[in-house]
Design a protein around this nucleic acid. Structure first.
Lengths: 346, 346
DNA sequence: CCCTAGGCTGCAAACGTTTGTCGGTCCACC
DNA sequence: GGTGGACCGACAAACGTTTGCAGCCTAGGG
């Protein structure tokens, strides 16, 4: 079987439906129906067409199909940084949901560059049916403009008229409470990227909870959401005099642990550390990292589902319009206590 | 600016070039040239077309373009498991290279299911210009057949006529030697998936090196390349009586460490552990994992480059034909010694 | 034997682009 | 004032599919 067409070595041009039809001795339309419309053509013809297609290694052109149907069956997921395990989990969740609905997913990594983000959107907008934009660093106006050009769902970004799926702040609130219970009265917070919406939201939740509990709060300024930004955060935390460090995400916490271990500062003896996201590896550190678990896969799946809803019909899950204030679009986070937090130093 | 067409709320149909042309009062071809062929139409007309396009939120259809040019500008990367940090690094390397060449990348996660792999290829083949297939679990015949249907480059898979990029075995050889130097005379090897080509190759290298050094070798059988398969590997290693455990990859090693820590077995005091890939987190464990570093990003980039070469012209990097025996297609691996290996127990 | 109905198949249009070619207009120069 | 050229815009074909419509052939019943 699989006798290659003419025994040719490497075919110069991909076989087209017309080639198949010619070889099977039928018209193009018949060939099309034989391959995709079972029962519409006779068994004998179908077999001949099938064989011709096999022999030629025929692969239908999705583009040609799309130009007729107007749909590509493809959805793009744009993330700020693929090497961040958090986004990886998100990707998987979205992939799963989409595959179940016979959609193909394109993943684009922006590498934390906002300029790159617009470029990627530009390149993707015309070739996909819709886009899931995770943790976009775009400003409100730009985001709103893109929503008009292509069906869009944002993750952890709140802009009017942009369908959204986001995570709650229960986790960080619980983290501050947890620290308070252990006697901590001064916590330092290492912020994430300045352009991040969830960072702003997370910070506010920490500040408010601190105020409520009467805990002193130190702002350590912005940090890149990468491990190599962690050491600086650790240094700043120590200078601040706080007894606990809350990091914007686990990667920063990892880097902070690196520095603390290296300088012989006992954790949690001297300083407690809390991360965010509960990424792969959070339980591997010494001490194992206390962190806020985020249902990343679920988040990705939910966003994908939301996008499919937008594509399918009027809008999102809610009745009126796919507005961002849909309450069902928020997923809860929870604190996972491990060994990097303990009683306050004194 | 950005006065939405007719002030409409959500446009039901995406604007087409014809819409833009009509609104600008020119023909379709002029509109096309105004947008993409600077200088070909007058400044005034260009401006009018531009404005019309903006107002309508026009996004050119990549599909329509592709159906004419025959190229989609898209390449697919198929990996067995996206949650494995190794493949994530590979993805990034490939993404980078492709973006530099103005190509869009599609990432497909097969989730270790060979059946799913064929499905994914089927879905992707028609919509991309070429495919990079990482660690394919397909058998030789199937892989060869696919190569005839779509331009393909395989990573860590050696099949005649399939262009390949792969990793060397220097690292594992060095690992066995390293253990031998530390007095180990009996090492156990926890194999990876049975369908993995690199697993077979890696095992052979270990066996040969053991034979050369006069070290006893125990085969612990196949394991899924996941962390949760590690505990069983650890148990098997202890039963085997070996003083060192070589794991197919870091994830299995992580799981093994989990179990060993849990059962109070000192590492490396009682048992040395070596992983493979040097994935994210390998230096986070306690003790930090000795492992074989693989240039994953470089591997991805190299594979992408190879595919572009295939797409561009006659074949791969070498002169004659893009055969798998191209010597330049192999990237070296090296041992990274950390704290999970030490002198043999006795 | 003829008519009808139903089952297969082919013709052609359409999807949204890009691009080769041609015609028209205007200006400048002779 | 005429001619040539530069510049600009439009017409139409083409890419590979899918699909509405119509036509043909066959089989079966009257």
């Amino acid at each position: 079987m699989h006798a290659l067409a003419g025994g040719g070595r490497r075919m110069t041009r991909r076989a087209t439906l017309a080639d198949v039809a010619r070889r099977a001795g039928v018209s193009v339309s018949t060939a099309s129906r034989a391959l995709h419309r079972p029962g519409r053509v006779s068994a004998g013809t179908t077999a001949r067409v099938q064989q011709a297609a096999d022999e030629l290694g025929y692969v239908p052109s999705a583009a040609a199909r799309q130009v007729r149907s107007g749909r590509s069956g493809t959805v793009a997921l744009v993330v700020p940084d693929l090497t961040n395990p958090f986004f990886m989990a998100l990707v998987r969740g979205s992939t799963r949901h989409l595959r179940e609905h016979d959609m193909v997913q394109v993943v684009a990594d922006v590498e934390e560059e906002p300029r790159s983000e617009e470029q990627v959107l530009e390149a993707l907008a015309g070739r996909v049916d819709g886009i899931v934009l995770a943790a976009s660093r775009l400003d409100r106006a730009a985001l709103a403009a893109w929503t008009r050009r292509v069906p869009l769902v944002a993750i952890n970004r709140d802009v009017a008229d942009v369908p959204t799926v986001r995570t709650g702040t229960q986790g960080v609130v619980a983290a501050v409470e947890h620290l308070h219970e252990r006697g901590h009265r001064h916590v330092a917070y290492a912020r994430g990227p300045a352009t991040s919406w969830s960072e702003e939201r997370r910070r506010r939740a920490v500040v408010e909870t601190c105020a409520r509990l009467g805990t002193r709060f130190s702002d350590l300024g912005h940090h890149a959401p990468r491990r190599d930004a962690g050491p600086a955060a650790a240094d700043a935390a120590r200078r601040s005099g706080a007894s606990a460090l809350l990091a914007y995400n686990d990667l920063i916490a990892f880097g902070a642990l690196d520095r603390l271990t290296e300088s012989g500062v006992p954790v949690p003896g001297e300083l407690s550390v809390v991360g965010h996201d509960d990424v792969f590896g959070a339980d591997l550190t010494t001490p194992a990292l206390t962190t806020v678990a985020v249902p990343a896969e679920e988040l990705g799946a939910r966003a994908a589902a939301r996008l499919l809803a937008v594509l399918d019909g009027a809008g999102g899950a809610t009745g009126a319009d796919a507005t961002s204030s849909d309450p069902g679009a928020e997923l809860p986070t929870r604190l996972v206590v491990r060994d990097s937090t303990g009683p306050a130093a004194r």
